[in-house]
Amino acid sequence: MSVRFQGEVARLQHVSYAYNSHTVLENVDLTISAGDFAAVIGPNGGGKTTLLKLLLGLLKPRSGTVTLFGQAPAKAAHRVGYVPQDVHINRFFPLTVLELALMGRLGPGRLLRRYSAKDLTAAEAALDRMEMLAYRKARLDELSGGQRQRVFIARALASEPEALFLDEPAAGVDSVGQKDLYSHLKELNDRMTILVVTHDLLVLSTYVKSVVCVNRSLVHHPSPEVTENMLRLGYQCPVELLGHGHLPHRVLPLHGGKDRG
């Protein structure tokens, strides 16, 4: 394990966010230290994606401050490799795997410049790292869900980022593909900080170092052990967690009187 990680990658202080009048995050604090491998869990609509977008400057908080590498997110976002949610992307867009990976080499200072040999090398190295170089000429809709996600990660890696933020990278990926995906991430964590939004608690104990539970409020657990509080905040019904053992599906009672309808 590398020890050259220092300082913090991202920080939220007293951050609130609302879509129109619907509050998604309320007065949350979070610090992601360099070298962390953090899983963001919580129910749908609980604010997981919002949290990621706030950190990347794609959304502006209603109140509170967000910093990324100590700077305003919009200024530092290019230092993060971003893997957005697959579902919003046009699956049939005419685009090859290599062209997609090359997008990771784009940047504000590179307008009016063609991709250089260095860009091509970096994109191919990233694809190779994710074991997708053989598919460089394939169209995106010719790949399986797991392969597509690996290409999206390669695109993020092509920019040679210091951190990787992923939004549900395992959605639509079969269980073998998921294991494969997470072991790739675990390897990458030797070199970079990773923040992954996930639905799947499989990742918890096996791969990650800390867990961020988001459901309007936020609790950051420094170790990946599942606690009762985590279940209470993150999940009203930890189906998937229990599903991976041999236990039947159980609905745990709510703790506390807070409304979470």
Binding site: A77, H78, P84, I89, F93, M103, G104, L106, L111, R155
Partner: peptide, 23 residues
């Protein structure tokens, strides 16, 4: 022709393009 790669990125994935710092 001048902005092909940027227009491609913006068309395909607006959020990623924004994170890369494109206008």
């Amino acid at each position: 022709a001048l902005f092909h790669k940027e227009l491609l990125a913006v068309s395909y994935d607006e959020h990623f393009a924004r994170v890369r710092g494109l206008p």
